[in-house]
Simulated assay, not measured.
Amino acid sequence: MAPAADNTGAFAVSLMTFSPGIRGVQRSFKLRSVNFQGRLWLLAKDAAKALGTPVNSLRQRCQSGLDSSAWGYATVPDKTGRPAMMMLVAVDDLARFLCGARTRQGRMFRRWLEGLTRP
């Protein structure tokens, strides 16, 4: 089951850093993550920035290409600390979804995600 918005408040957010190490690309990307029901979830906005793709493009591709249990909306604190409704994507499903990534940055991000899902 994907995270759903509730009235009890926001999820606890932790910060992770992805460093692609590619010349001409931003040195590192800060990704906000949430642990929910034993699964790690990333904010779609942060994942899109790390992939180098527009946020709406990733959102539409996830909604059409992933199972409904792989993504969802939840109340998460934004950068200012106020609760906001944001889309979350499960890390393991996003890594499988990116198997056909064509860009170098996309392939590096997929490998980084796969490293997070391994025990």
Rank of each mutant, 00 (worst) to 15 (best):
P3V: 08
A101N: 09
T117A: 11
R82E: 02
R39V: 12
A2S: 07
Q60M: 15
Q105Y: 04
G24V: 10
R104H: 06
R59Q: 11
T117E: 01
R96F: 04
A84T: 07
S69W: 05
V89D: 00
A2L: 02
T80G: 11
D6A: 14
A101E: 09
S68T: 15
F11R: 02
A74G: 06
W71E: 01
L98I: 04
S68Y: 13
D92S: 13
A12S: 15
G38F: 09
L58W: 05
W112T: 10
D46T: 03
G52M: 09
N56G: 13
R118H: 09
W112F: 15
S69T: 09
A47W: 09
N7T: 13
D67W: 12
F29G: 00
K30I: 12
M16A: 12
R82Y: 03
A47G: 07
P83S: 03
A4W: 07
A5V: 13
R110V: 08
D6V: 13
V34Y: 05
A74Y: 01
G24N: 07
S68D: 14
S28A: 15
G81H: 01
A74N: 01
T103Q: 12
T53P: 00
C62R: 00
V91H: 04
L51F: 05
F97D: 01
P83W: 02
V91D: 01
F36G: 06
P77S: 10
Q37G: 05
L40V: 13
